[in-house]
Design a binder for these strands. Structure first.
Lengths: 342, 342
DNA sequence: AGAAAAAATGTAACCGATAACATTTTCTGA
DNA sequence: TCAGAAAATGTTATCGGTTACATTTTTTCT
């Protein structure tokens, strides 16, 4: 059924080497034999066994992608970008849903040691490798995307989250907001820390006080945004705006705020981060920070391939641009901020 | 750096076969030698080269997953289910974003011929194989999930879309709706046809007329739902409810309807399909059909592994249950249906 | 104890391609 | 025309495991 290179060689009346060359370096084969071989290949519908090629070459042309969860809309876009870049270079993606589990990540990163994959793209700021895994250039076969992992041995593609968060905060401050709550991502995510720092930066620059009581925990899901808004409503500090660390939490929060009869943005402003498709169709459409998600994926893959090909001499850090998208979930601060216990 | 089986054999003072057996069928090796080998493996930190194993065994333990687009929230959940089932059985997923392109799908399905993958999970109703690809049981190394592909040679896991659509329609009819528009998916999707048939079934049973003019095309994206609603608003037939073939289009439609000043469900009811997370946090929360997305993925993978292991004697068709989830996007039909040109 | 059976281990072919090296063929130029 | 260079092609070891088969060791039973 499946023919191999020997059958092709026999049918074409040449040696296996000639068949291999016809496929790999056709310029080394004379036109006539090349034609004979090509015809034999077609006749037998020969397809090289890529497992054999990969085994022999020691290159699997597979890339492990460690994603906290594919259910996240932003990551879905990043993955799409990776897909395309990888396909263009002849690489396949082995997608792993890590659910944020370090042990799982280390497990899968080990696929490199078993030659199942050549490299890893990590979407979380966790390093599943150790010093022994660096190559001759001193680089890890890994690229870190979206979140910043403090590993000098690997290229990173990210966004200046601190600056972006500051820009968003300034937008709120300009609208007159003085009581801004924040719904954060999990504490384990450096992204959360960066965005919080940007938030603080902007408050300080504006002469506003940072209030620890107005920081609420979330986990980037709709439900967690909903729950955090619930907690915001049941505490005593005044609040006129909520800065959410991603769009999903913002949409969840809006859902809860509306259920409480609050109008957005008249009573309270809400902002997101990521600019997922839903944020443009919500009521109201969400003010958010656009990230070039597909480009994140694309860049990550290309950087990794550079490392794998030994083209990268040192770990570059790529910072992609963000964009503040102002829609209708933010408006002028109300005369009287929301404060349920008043 | 990376040690191979021969080094382990040398260190343990046994033959390579014994090392291999220690790993594959330990019961064939005496406890003492097994211990010696195990110690050598640890000392050398030996990891079998899985590319070699896969090549030799002819089984890649890879599964190609053809997804129209990972950006679709429903598919993201299905993929998560597949991930887990695959990992549990030692398989890896090669995810391919086909963007609905037949040529791309055939290309990637070909990974089976090049021994890069053992099987395919197809989330679209397109068969990238031909009759030659069936195994000795007469089965294709493929499982069809979500949409029903009319291929008797491959297992299918789906939902009774026709029945579910009918149930949803009945719900609207019971609320008194007599002018129901439908926003469909792409005509190329059999799912669209099934849901439309269910819609028609229910109308007929209720003695209502089916009106071709109230069928609108979409492509399962938010934007297409928005656009379709726009078209609904600019035509002349009265409409009191819109049945959308998925949640994303429903949310897009709601966005457009609200922009026109319509209240949901007081002026017009809207329904979705899939029960994605967003549908529970929208304003209003969406009445929809819940599908067990993760279970789809899980079942698909398990069926495929059965086929690959030769355990499946014939192509089974699994029908998973749906559930009508009634939220606040549907309500009693208004006295006067929406009809902008009136 | 010794033969037969069972268990443990070893030897080496093999999977399918690649590529180093060897050999043959074709081309070039005096 | 013929030596030498260049081009084309062939031969074969090799990648790292698995496994059929051969051989050796241990156990069992009379």
């Amino acid at each position: 059924m499946l023919s191999n290179i020997r059958e092709v060689a026999d049918l074409a009346g040449v040696s296996v080497a000639t068949v291999s060359r016809t496929l790999q370096q056709p310029e080394l084969v004379s036109p006539k034999t090349r034609a004979r071989v090509t015809r034999a290949i077609e006749q037998l519908d020969y397809k090289p066994n890529l497992m054999a090629v990969k085994f022999r070459s020691g290159k699997s042309h597979n890339i492990v992608v460690l994603v906290p969860t594919v259910a996240n809309v932003f990551f879905a876009r990043v993955i799409r970008g990776m897909q395309e870049a990888a396909a263009a270079e002849g690489y396949s993606l082995l997608l792993v849903n890590t659910m944020g589990d370090n042990a799982t990540e280390q497990n899968y990163a080990r696929m490199i040691h078993t030659s199942q994959a050549d490299g890893v793209v990590q979407l979380r700021a966790f390093n599943p490798f150790n010093e022994n895994d660096v190559d001759d250039q001193g680089l890890l076969p890994m690229v870190n995307a979206c979140e910043i992992l403090d590993a000098p041995q690997c290229p990173t593609v990210s966004l200046d989250n601190r600056l972006a968060a500051a820009a968003m905060t300034e937008h709120l401050v300009e609208l007159g907001h003085q009581h801004i709550a924040m719904i954060k991502g999990p504490a384990s995510s450096p992204l959360t820390r960066e965005r919080m720092l940007g938030f603080k930066d902007a408050l300080r620059e504006s002469g506003l006080n940072y209030c620890e009581d107005l920081m609420f925990d979330g986990d980037f899901t709709l439900q967690s945004g909903f729950d955090a808004a619930d907690r915001i409503l049941s505490q005593t500090h005044p609040v006129s705006a909520i800065f959410c660390e991603n769009d999903e939490m913002a949409l969840g929060a809006i859902s809860r705020l509306k259920a409480a009869g609050l109008r957005i943005p008249e009573d309270i402003s809400v902002t997101g981060f990521d600019n997922i498709a839903f944020s443009n169709f919500s009521d109201p459409p969400l003010t958010t920070i656009a990230q070039p998600a597909e480009e994140f994926g694309e860049t990550a893959i290309n950087l990794l391939i550079d490392v794998l090909k030994g083209k990268a001499k040192r770990a570059v850090k790529v910072i992609l641009p963000y964009q503040l998208i102002i829609r209708n979930s933010t408006g002028p601060a109300p005369a009287q901020p929301v404060n349920p216990t008043q």
